[in-house]
Write a protein that binds this DNA or RNA. Structure first.
Lengths: 208, 208
DNA sequence: TTGCACGAGTGGTCTGACCACATTTAACTC
DNA sequence: GAGTTAAATGTGGTCAGACCACTCGTGCAA
């Protein structure tokens, strides 16, 4: 890419690639088991500690899941570990927190627009059910509501990004808002009222 | 969250937190040096291998930078390593690639909306300069153009997310588009024509 | 059939050794 | 004394081996 490629690849990086290749060529699916650390060490001609460095890195990224006494498994993508750590490292300045909420709102707004026209009445009424359920925290309602919406966008990546940020944000503050917001949103869904979306989201209290 | 919290925290996870704390309390800045692995092992009462597992994880996330023979340093945030590895792991299905481009476009569109009204004439003409420069690849022009726009949003997080995804995407395909798109966009900036933004972005060739 | 103990397999962790590389220091040469 | 070279030191990179802790299957015993 840029200037001097370090050229000296560390063992654990090579291991990372080999594991990836292994997953590919054996067509492993989420939940499947990887070879044991000792086995990998022997097959890949590396020390077990190098194998572990690679695995820990993958674990932190949420790519694998290790179970003590059982083995190492491909995880269904759950970025939780990543989230908690990243949040503590990245969310340092106050400005970032404000950016975070703004970005979350932005993603939510776009998700709403994406699904507006192909959300059935039945699905909208399901949204009503969601917001009328009982929650201990506003964030929980918010998460339930928008998780459903993001599912309907059929954009897995968008969902991932939003989820990541939402998890980020909820470690430090409240992202959800009061019930009226969701009720208005549902009305918009019923009316297929594209033009009110921007207005509604502009009035959300970005409490910061 | 869900069922059983593992409760048993691994050593390397504890180390991770302690290092983070160390950075905080000593107010380390990007570029500053961390204690050596052996030193950390002694101070944190852990084996060097555990320290290394924590450091490798941080390295993969782009939080630190290790230089053989010198030491470990806080890195200025450059998610490149992360990107390359994530991309090879995550970008498996074709659907994800499509989602990726869709999400990038979405972020770009919103960035445009955010800056539309407070972009000066001078800044817009700078955008013209950017697109009229010579590039070897479409992606380069695209990156230059939108990097400038994202800078103007004053939303650092939004910029990071977009940059991350853009790096992702460009490892596998072309994201940029032909010159006319940028020219139209500049016209929109000049006219402060809020309502044409959606239309323009809807017509972008999502070549996939 | 049921219950439990045991052993094999696996991840979790530590220790100590050695190598490779970079910087600092000391010694040597001119 | 100045400059060059060599040794010592400090650091990350890697490996091998040893234990520990945990899970699960197997087979024996009640």
């Amino acid at each position: 890419m840029a200037v001097s490629m370090p050229s000296k690849q560390k063992v654990y990086q090579g291991v990372l690639k080999e594991i990836r290749q292994f997953i590919d060529s054996n067509d492993l699916q989420p939940g499947d088991k990887l070879p044991s650390e000792r086995e990998l060490a022997e097959n890949l001609q590396a020390g077990r500690s190098s194998i572990r460095e690679a695995l820990r890195a993958m674990e932190l990224l949420g790519l694998i899941e290790t179970r003590h006494g059982e083995g190492t498994f491909l995880s269904t993508y759950r970025p939780h570990q990543t989230v908690e750590l990243l949040s503590s490292f990245i969310l340092q300045g106050d400005q970032v927190k404000v950016d975070l909420v703004e970005t979350i709102r932005l993603l939510e707004k776009e998700a709403v627009k994406l699904v507006l026209y192909h959300l059935t009445e039945k699905e909208v009424s399901h949204l009503s059910t969601i917001i009328n359920a009982t929650y201990t925290k506003q964030n929980a309602r918010h998460a339930a509501f928008f998780t459903y919406i993001f599912e309907k966008t059929n954009n897995l990546l968008l969902w991932k990004v939003w989820h990541l940020m939402f998890d980020f944000a909820t470690t430090v503050e409240n992202v959800g808002t009061d019930k009226s917001f969701y009720i208005e949103l549902i009305q918009i869904f019923l009316d297929k009222d594209h033009y009110s979306i921007d207005d509604l989201f502009d009035t959300v209290p970005n409490k910061s």
